[in-house]
């Protein structure tokens, strides 16, 4: 299937992109890796009149350590994140999630910025970024603003980005040394979207959860935090019994969808199982 006709605007800088978006308003779409947008355009579910390609903007593709954060340029690909030594060491949750998105070819093209902006509640990055309290640098006609992850994922396929804004950088707080993270994704086949996935990051010291973060994919209209689990574990002993009891709370406050691959009940159940397994993995040998 062939996308509907559109005008293509390749920009070299972020301000140019912002200007083009401002000019064309709702009729325009931003193109990065294209792995969320192009499939929709091919099925003509998305028919923008103008496509603004930021793929050639320099300096939007990097992973670097800044004060207290790991910063990702919006054009950083899933592949680069999957294989980054810095990410594997500092944010193993993100490396783990990146390695499970789509398939190798998709990971070579898809970008973190694109996936975040697409705000798919069954997407893998949104949950991780929410879980990690990431912050999003956004540039619009009135300059730059920073959006917290908790404010960024507004609804199903809806982020806090305005149509004339460009997401440029995503920053994730660097966790304390010895922090572990993992992303457990349950799907029918490995290339599929998650039926449910759990993002977990834990700092365990003296057999206690010093810091704990749990997020849920595909358990509602937006990515969610499993706050009840976090509360049940923070400062508590990292033992099997505590973990099991806490994981039972994983589905609290969620509103999981119904589709061919999972009923709400099944998803609630999977959330508890995956949460427990993730925690077991993170505390193994500690």
């Amino acid at each position: 299937m062939i996308p509907a006709s559109f005008d293509y605007i390749a920009v070299k800088t972020v301000p140019e992109a912002v200007a083009e978006l401002a000019k064309h308003g709702d009729e325009s779409k931003l193109l990065a890796g294209g792995h969320s947008l192009i499939p929709l355009m091919k099925l003509r579910l998305s028919t923008p009149s103008f496509v603004v390609d930021i793929g050639r903007v320099k300096d939007l593709n990097y992973i670097r350590r800044t004060d207290g954060h790991i910063a990702f340029g919006a054009l950083t690909t899933h592949h680069d994140i999957e294989f980054s030594d810095l990410v594997k060491e500092q944010l193993p949750l993100l490396a783990s999630a990146a390695s499970q998105i789509g398939d190798p070819q998709v990971r070579n093209r898809g970008t973190m910025g694109g996936a975040a902006a697409h705000a798919d509640p069954s997407g893998d990055y949104p949950t991780c970024l929410l879980t990690l309290d990431a912050e999003f640098d956004v540039v619009g006609p009135n300059g730059r603003r920073v959006i917290k992850a908790s404010d960024f994922f507004v609804g199903t396929f809806t982020s806090a980005l305005q149509p004339d804004e460009v997401l440029t950088e995503i920053r994730v707080p660097a966790p304390p040394a010895g922090t572990r993270g993992t992303y457990l994704k349950f799907s029918r086949r490995s290339q599929d979207w998650a039926i449910v996935a759990v993002a977990a990051q834990a700092t365990v010291k003296d057999r206690k959860f010093q810091e704990i973060r749990i997020g849920l994919t595909s358990m509602g209209g937006t990515p969610l935090r499993a706050s009840a689990v976090e509360a049940a574990l923070r400062g508590k002993s990292a033992d099997a019994d505590t973990i099991r009891k806490a994981a039972e709370k994983a589905a609290e406050g969620t509103d999981p969808p119904q589709d061919l691959n999972g009923s709400p009940d099944y998803r609630r159940h999977l959330a508890t199982v995956l949460t427990r397994r993730a925690l077991e993995q993170l505390t193994a040998g500690r």
């Binding site: 299937m1 499939p39 093209r109």
Partner: peptide
């Protein structure tokens, strides 16, 4: 037409890509 099957895989600047999910202008 959903980037699922990989029949269109080519190498682009050293990376395998699904060429049905890339515009020629890109």
């Amino acid at each position: 037409d959903t980037s699922s099957c990989g029949a269109c895989t080519v190498e682009m600047d050293g990376h395998s890509v699904k060429s049905c999910t890339v515009f020629a202008v890109q």
